[in-house]
Design a protein around this nucleic acid. Structure first.
Lengths: 118, 118
DNA sequence: GCTATATTTAACAACGTTGTTATTTAACAA
DNA sequence: TTGTTAAATAACAACGTTGTTAAATATAGC
């Protein structure tokens, strides 16, 4: 029972180093060394982060001489964003209905007070 | 150095049980027992999933007699969705530019062939 | 106070993640 | 071949996660 793709995507995004790598890749492809440069961790650690991202389908890698350039792959981001949008929207609708309900209550309340004043 | 909020949110979403709990909560508040019902795991396990979601700010919980009703909290979903949309959009722009570039190439190519035919 | 119900906490095992350093592989260049 | 650079793998430690069962806590109702 290996984890489904949403799980793999969210798990990959749940690390600041990996998100920073993706942010960097959003502005163009880069080699492993280039990606490692901003971080205070060893190359093997970066190499593993890249493997996690690749496994999640968030990046793919080419091969040019001794470099393995990484590129962003947007599809899993789309799926995950879709999931979140879906539930966020459902929830906003609930809030809207609650809001409408409270407004209704309020109106009824004012009407009731108006009657009493007569 | 505790993890930032995006990290906490994504980590909380990186579990199918927790996503199913949120999905259930999107249709209204529920008690721990109600939330546990669809799953083949023990109550303490559910209790911990809820603690993870609460810690991530994705739910909050009331107190009614011996029940602790859970409600969805949309704010962290918004932040995380925002992050993903941002990078997804950047990447789509890159793809669009690549697309435009390839179309340009193609046009130039056709023009070149047209010249040769004369 | 006693009992039933809802939920949490404690203690533990199994497993996964993230980092390290040392070693290995691959490709270029002399 | 030999050396250099880029990157991956191996072996390991530290720590976090997810599940378990057993025990504790809190509240309602008699």
């Amino acid at each position: 029972m290996r984890p489904d793709s949403l799980t793999t995507t969210f798990a990959a995004l749940a690390d600041p180093t990996r998100r920073a790598i993706l942010a960097r890749l959003a502005s163009g492809e880069a080699s492993v060394t280039e990606l490692a440069q901003p971080f205070a961790i060893s190359m093997p650690a970066i190499s593993r982060h890249l493997k996690v991202l690749e496994h999640a389908g968030l990046i793919d890698r080419g091969r040019e001489a001794q470099w393995r350039p990484c590129r962003l792959q947007a599809q899993p981001l789309k799926e995950a964003a879709g999931w979140m949008e879906h539930y966020r929207r459902l929830w906003d609708q609930r809030l809207d209905r609650l809001d409408a309900f409270l407004k209704e209550m309020d109106k009824a309340e004012r009407r009731s007070r108006a009657r009493k004043r007569k």
